[in-house]
């Protein structure tokens, strides 16, 4: 029975590729689809297509509009292609004193930085869990799994409190205090120069705390699929464990390292929980935070065409990464999903 349903086994090809390329198998035999059925199904498919395209067309149309007033009637196809909204977003994204370049830089720093660091640290641990049998294995694996049960906010709260203690304070009289190691003399309030909590570095640390266990599990799942014989062959060829890791396992895992990195990138690009909680200075804001600022109660003064342009800008890198790597990423997502 299980051989009939290879969808649950990742090795049998990528679901998205099959989703896109399927043109052979189907329900009925080789006979043609009756015309009335063809037309009926076409109507259904077009209705679905309309519902899928509706918000996309709406926001794209809005973003190409030059009207700064709010939309008074529904427009799903651009009447004009005006880049005013994009230009304004790039020039002056928010009411805060922060440039678009800074926002972009912050978003990229966080998403790329956390992705790389987590990967680097996770890969050796994933290797150990995947390939060695040792006494503490089960215990340590459960330990790695525990944080995955905690939603992001559950990790962000204690980190907020802990990272908040790391400050650099100008105590005056040319004395700089590095808290919590050195504090200013008692009674001196000093001037706060740097608070780890209120910095991109602090946010990065907090996101990494949650990203690491995920990266370890994801990579371990992949390393498990590398045949054991390859390592045995390497052992007989004369490789010690380190050489096997660097020369055999790591090169073989490279595609999955990339996938894990990009999955991380997609997630951290949209990261909001931690950054919105930690950061108070507009110069540190990310694109996701800015997008949030452009809706709802804070956004009464923001023209919707500018909001729409920002939405498109935030969506584009993710969409781009998805489309460029759709094979691997959706494959990874579904196998991850299948594995639970």
């Amino acid at each position: 029975m299980s051989t009939l349903v290879p969808a649950s086994t990742p090795s049998k090809g990528n679901p998205l590729v099959r989703f896109l390329n399927m043109n052979t198998s189907g329900h009925t035999s080789g006979r043609n689809l009756p015309l009335w059925r063809q037309l009926l199904l076409q109507i259904v498919c077009i209705l679905i297509l309309c519902s899928v395209m509706f918000p996309i067309m709406y926001i794209v149309t809005l973003s190409f509009s030059s009207k700064t007033t709010r939309p008074s009637s529904l427009e799903l196809f651009p009447k004009e292609i005006s880049l005013v909204a994009y230009q304004q977003v790039l020039d002056h994204p928010t009411g805060n004193p922060v440039t678009f370049t800074e926002l972009l830089r912050n978003s990229i720093t966080l998403s790329v930085g956390v992705g790389l660091v987590a990967l680097l640290i996770a890969v050796t641990a994933a290797y150990a869990f995947s390939r060695f049998n040792f006494k503490m294995r089960e215990v340590l694996m459960v330990l790695v799994f525990i944080p995955l049960l905690m939603p992001a906010i559950g990790l962000a709260t204690p980190l907020y409190l802990l990272l908040n203690n790391f400050r650099i304070v100008d105590c005056g009289k040319d004395i700089t205090a590095f808290m919590p190691l050195f504090a200013c003399d008692e009674g001196v309030r000093g001037k706060l120069i740097f608070n780890l909590r209120d910095s991109l570095l602090g946010v990065g640390i907090a996101i990494t705390a949650g990203a690491l266990p995920f990266a370890i599990w994801n990579l371990k799942g992949y390393l498990d699929t590398i045949p054991k014989e390859l390592e045995e062959a390497a052992a007989i060829d004369g490789a010690d464990a380190n050489q096997t890791f660097w020369k055999i396992i790591l090169p073989l895992a490279a595609p999955q390292l990339a996938v894990t990195f990009f999955l991380g990138f997609i997630g951290h690009w949209q990261e909001f929980v931690t950054s919105w909680l930690f950061l108070s200075q507009p110069k540190d804001y990310t694109l996701a935070m800015t997008l949030y600022n452009m809706t709802g109660q804070y956004a009464s003064s923001i023209p919707w065409n500018r909001f729409a342009a920002m939405a498109v800008i935030v969506a584009l890198p993710v969409a781009f990464v998805y489309i460029a790597l759709q094979k691997q990423i959706v494959g990874g997502l579904t196998t991850g999903g299948v594995k639970g």
């Binding site: 014989e229 090169p251 490279a254």
Partner: peptide
């Protein structure tokens, strides 16, 4: 250790290193 036994082994699944060329597979040891 296997590497110090002066043996070579041919596996059922061949266990060729997929990322290396035939030359590098043979030269690896």
């Amino acid at each position: 250790a296997p590497k110090d036994r002066d043996i070579a082994m041919v596996f059922q699944s061949y266990a060729l290193y997929p990322h290396l060329s035939v030359y590098d597979n043979m030269a690896f040891g």
